[in-house]
Amino acid sequence: MGSLSAASVGSGGQISRSRANMRFNALLVAGSLLAVGGLVALGPVRFALGLTLDDAWQLALIHAELALAPLLFLPVVGGRGKALENLAAAAACASAGAATVLLFSFAVMGGVGLDTRALAGVAWLAVSGLLALGARFGPHWVLRVRVLVLCAFGLPALWHYLLLEYAGASGGHLAALSPNWALATHSISLWPLLLAGALAWSGALALPDRGRA
């Protein structure tokens, strides 16, 4: 108990800084995604990526939103009260991300922006829930969870390749864990991320504060 209090006091400045970050988290999301959108519009980048300024532009932005969510969400470390603030911040981040993606609707004929909102919503739910759960245990756990989420989102495609190459088996079912892969292969399944997000947020909100424990 004493050591925990000391840790809290010692990291007080860090916590207040992270709280300030959380306040401007939506600005970070919107600014980053707008920057990505502008970057993709640059000729050399566009040609290097093989993109055109039509539906592909918004799709690239959606991929960026899904991939950057684990990096852009900055939870406040602390007790239950902070978890509630994290929940509100996560909702604001998801909303800012959605608004930025929909801003690029001028380039598309179809409704890919709206169609992917459910996927982006559950991705934000899972990412923010897991990071908020980590934030209940301290800043180091936030970093660890961030790495774990990045691995969970990024590595299934690699595992699938390795399974195909060395075991002759398909790991296609792992697409449910990786929103980018699911979007690219049109095999979107919301349940695993929804379940992970719901469980993580339940844990983050239900765990007793460490001081009281």
């Binding site: 709280r19 306040r23 406040v76 911040a89 604001a92 959605a98 608004a99 801003l103 001028f106 380039a107």
Partner: peptide, 25 residues
């Protein structure tokens, strides 16, 4: 902190809705 976040949630939703009104190709 949460009132500002909820205001952002509502404001961004409104901007997203307006974005859908843009002329499309």
């Amino acid at each position: 902190a949460w009132p500002a976040q909820l205001a952002l949630l509502a404001g961004c939703a409104g901007i997203g809705g307006l974005a859908l009104l843009q002329a499309r190709p």
